[in-house]
Design a protein around this nucleic acid. Structure first.
Lengths: 219, 219
DNA sequence: CCTTTTTTGTTGTAAAAACAACAGGCTTGT
DNA sequence: ACAAGCCTGTTGTTTTTACAACAAAAAAGG
């Protein structure tokens, strides 16, 4: 476990804590380490989770197979990322996706009850972890709501307007840089790249905005 | 504040606690009550939040105006619902939406720091609230991810397959009831009702499934 | 029981998006 | 400097969706 302290230190969960702090908390949080070979399932659809997990080595895929056999990649988890936190609530039911290792991987499990219930020995940094966890999940929440706001628009143009407006608000300026290239933006908005590129140029020609590469300005 | 104890008791935040328990915690959580007239803004775009809010009377709308003036209803908040919890993280930045009262409304604000930091006087039920808060937000998170999974599919048919598969998994049976009528389902999946209805019937004719009203069976 | 309203399915048309294929420009690495 | 590989824009075609309008069935209300 010691081996991965430097990685844990960089995670959102332990943000602001030193390696020594983290080390002293591991037992208090009932941390357990599991290894997986490339191709192994970390979790299977139908399982019930009661752990918050952090990937410290390798790479995972969260994927979903529907009844007719269509497979979708929901997300890929890189080193330092947390997962499973959305499934620990008792009413949350069984996991609906599979989590698969696509490289030899190592995951650390934390008992979420232990995290939430500040221990009687009152380890100093425990409440910090609670806050970190809360911030992380609430941040995720915010991002999801925003993305949903864009994607649920009917037309490509509306999706673009929604996204670009928001980016402009976030950066508090009509000129702003987006963190995507065209293909990534199209994927994010769930549209075809070329169609989106086309629409973007139409919007430019209509005088709604100007752009150059990933630098945009609303007019 | 007393007046609203019966409502607070039914919220997710205070689930499992009695009115007396809640009453004894209110000061510890630094609860504050605010009233709004129909049309008043509870929050405006650009503000920074540090409270978790619960609506105890009236009705609110979370709405978003983009740069070009298009207004979107993001959500409507009914009595007993919690909001604002996605914006309390320090890095979360300014609120990007407006929250408006569409009836005369009353909102109770809780200091999120007070919630997360279990008080030294160690009120017995505090850690229960922390857990409730965490469950509520993680549940929201889960729902958002799932919805996003459906909506981000390109075609109406794929959206339907994704949604129906999941509902089947959730209810652990190929026969299941959905909690929507056609219009609601179309809104949820962000497609046109008649087009969706059409697609649904095509799928039935192709032998993928059968349905009657909101009862479905996958084949 | 009858009327009214709501929900659902159906059809045709117009609009939009996906898709495919390609060209020019910009990067990167040798 | 050159070649190879990406990224972006552009165009034409095909497929899909939205939209509008309507009919039938079901539900609600008196």
């Amino acid at each position: 476990m010691k081996k991965y302290l430097s990685i844990l230190k960089k995670t959102k969960l332990f943000s602001g804590l030193s390696e020594t702090d983290i080390s002293s908390m591991l037992s208090c949080l009932d941390a357990k380490l599991f290894s997986y070979k490339n191709g192994d399932y970390v979790f299977r659809q139908g399982e019930h989770l009661s752990n918050i997990c952090v990937l410290v080595e390798g790479k995972l895929l969260i994927q979903n197979d529907d009844y007719w056999g269509n497979r979708t990649i929901i997300n890929n988890i890189s080193i330092g990322e947390m997962f499973g936190e959305a499934y620990v609530a008792p009413e949350s039911g069984a996991l609906l996706n599979d989590v698969v290792a696509v490289e030899d991987s190592v995951v650390i499990f934390f008992d979420f009850k232990k995290i939430l219930t500040v221990c009687s020995s009152a380890c100093r940094f425990h409440s910090m972890v609670v806050q970190n966890l809360f911030f992380a999940i609430s941040e995720k929440n915010k991002k999801l709501v925003q993305k949903l706001g864009h994607i649920s628009k009917r037309s490509t143009r509306e999706k673009l307007m929604s996204y670009l407006s928001e980016e402009s608000k976030k950066q508090n300026s009509l000129s702003f840089t987006i963190p995507f290239n065209r293909q990534q933006l199209a994927d994010f908005l769930s549209v075809d790249r070329s169609a989106m590129s086309n629409e973007l140029c139409k919007m430019r020609d209509e005088g709604l905005l100007v752009f150059e590469k990933n630098q945009f300005r609303l007019l």
